[in-house]
Structure formats: C-alpha cells, structure tokens
Design a protein around this nucleic acid. Sequence first.
DNA 1: CCGATGACAAGCA
DNA 2: ATGCTTGCCATCG
Length: 120
Amino acid sequence: MLSKQEKDALTQAVYDIVSRIPFGRVTSYGAIAEAVGYPNLSRMVGQIMKGSGNYEEKLPCHRVVNSQGFLSGKEGFGHSGQMQKLLEAEGVNIKDDKIINRKEVFWYPMKEIFIDERNI
DNA sequence: CCGATGACAAGCA
DNA sequence: ATGCTTGCCATCG
C-alpha cells in the first residue's frame, strides 16, 4: 500500500522521467516504474499517465508504450491515431499499433539518467 | 464492502 | 512464438 506522500513522490518522479525521454525514443511503463524505485508498479505508471492530461507539450507521454511495444495508451490521445502520428513524426515505425523498430528507439531510463548524472 | 477492471509485466506450458 | 496465469494496486460500480 502506498501512502499519499509516496503516491505524490511517485507521480512526480514519473513525470520527471517521462519529461526526459528524448525525441524519437520510447520507453515502457515497467522501465519507468523500475527507474523510480517501484519495479512492480507498472500499472500505477499507466494510471498516472492517464491522469496527467496527456498533451505532448506538457509531457511526451506518447513516448511511453508497454513492454511489448504496443501503443496501449493510444485511446487517451483521442481516437484518431494521434499517438501513432506523433511517434511516426519522430521516426518511430509502427504497424498494427506496435512499434517495429523497438530495439533502436527504446530508451532505458536508469541507464540514461545515470549517464546524465555523470555528465552534469 | 467486494468483485471487476485496467495506458502492465514476467513466468510458464 | 502464442496463449494463459499470477502478481500489483488504485478506481469504479
């Protein structure tokens, strides 16, 4: 069970990670959950995304997909393939709601943030 | 209050 | 690879 403070911290941490996802890259709910210290709370990450008003300008949540590379959150972007459009505009190849070049565009939060901390 | 559900994921057959 | 089962935890009816 998570206290309110923990939930707030989690939410903030998730926003922070998501805002760091580079252009043209994607990551997964699980990877984010892991990066914020709750490896088994991938579902909560999904809920947080849903709740955060998903607008590209606010947060690039279109760059968050599930571990298989499916655009599981596309319904949250309006039903006109908006999420897919945004990703394709960044060079991500998608077919049947699934990212084809997942390996090339996948972004590993922990790894990249570690690099950031070393470089800063 | 309790069961069902969900923008998830890993394990197993 | 494919499909099913089990963990997770907040929300909803």
